[in-house]
Amino acid sequence: MYKQLNLWENGETLEPATVQSQITPQNLILPDGDLVIYPNLFDTTESDQLFYELYNNTHWRQDAIKLYGKSIPLPRLTAWYGDRGTSYTYSGIEMNPEPWTSILLQIKSKIEPLSNVKFNSVLLNLYRDGKDGVSWHSDDEPELGNNTVIGSVSFGDTRRFMFRHKSKKYASQEVNLTHGSFLLMRGTTQQFWQHQIPKTSKPVKPRINLTFRVIITST
């Protein structure tokens, strides 16, 4: 279990996202992409509670990748939960699912009606501070099939989420993923676009991101 975070002591709370209707989406205009964001799907109180539960009760792991023959720790902690048989491999790292928790099922049940998809797995990332991030990539592994649907939920401090087109070098976009936001990526987005969470020298508090997915299984 990761050490407890004293984020709410002395009356301190995370800065809430811009006040908007929880169910009013904003379309992000990307050529060859299909993205919708709900900036404040989870209200501040619910987001604080979910962040605390996920931070302290998720089975976080420190994975590493091989780079030039050396083992390099990923600049973030990760966890993988889902249905049986939803193993997932990325960057040479094999993830075998742990059973769903009540907290994850609670979040899943809130985003599935908006996604029109029944997700069977979720990758969790814990960005502990500005030194943590994730480099340019697409969620296009074979296990995800074509026209992948990714439901991305964020809790914690706001981080920049950047997009760049794989062939149209002039095409780029970024959005701030705020506490309690939900970003839905679908259609050909993963086929044509890459995304990243850049590292930053600015002081930032921890952030947890959950990317719900549909893994193609043999059963």
Rank of each mutant, 00 (worst) to 15 (best):
Gly130His: 02
Ala171Gly: 00
Asp43Val: 03
Leu104Val: 09
Leu210Ser: 02
Thr148Ala: 12
Leu14His: 04
Arg76Leu: 04
Trp60Phe: 07
Leu124Asn: 03
Asn10Phe: 15
Arg160Ile: 05
Thr58Cys: 07
Lys199Asn: 05
Asn56Phe: 06
Ile103Arg: 02
Trp136Ile: 11
Ala64Trp: 01
Leu123Gln: 00
Gln20Pro: 01
Leu30Trp: 01
Ser138Phe: 03
Lys131Met: 09
Gly33Tyr: 06
Lys199Cys: 08
Leu126Phe: 07
Val122Lys: 01
Gly69Leu: 01
Lys118Thr: 14
Asp132Leu: 14
Leu183Ser: 00
Asn209Val: 00
Val134Asp: 04
Arg207Met: 14
Trp8Glu: 11
Trp60Glu: 11
Lys110Gln: 15
Leu54Val: 07
Asn125Glu: 04
Glu141Ala: 03
Ile29Thr: 15
Thr89Lys: 05
Ile111Tyr: 01
Gly133Thr: 05
Gln173Gly: 07
Ser91Phe: 03
Leu28His: 03
Ser109Ile: 01
Asp140Pro: 10
Thr86Pro: 05
Arg159Ser: 04
Tyr2Arg: 11
Tyr68Ala: 07
Tyr52Ser: 15
Thr178Ala: 08
Glu141Gln: 14
Pro198Cys: 13
Lys131Gly: 14
Thr101Val: 05
Thr101Trp: 11
Pro25Ala: 08
Gly33Asp: 05
Thr219Trp: 12
Gly33Arg: 05
Lys3Leu: 08
Lys169Ser: 07
Leu123Tyr: 01
Pro203Thr: 09
Val134Arg: 03
Leu41Gly: 01
Asp129Met: 10
Trp193Phe: 11
Ala17His: 11
Arg76Thr: 04
Pro73Lys: 03
Phe161Gly: 10
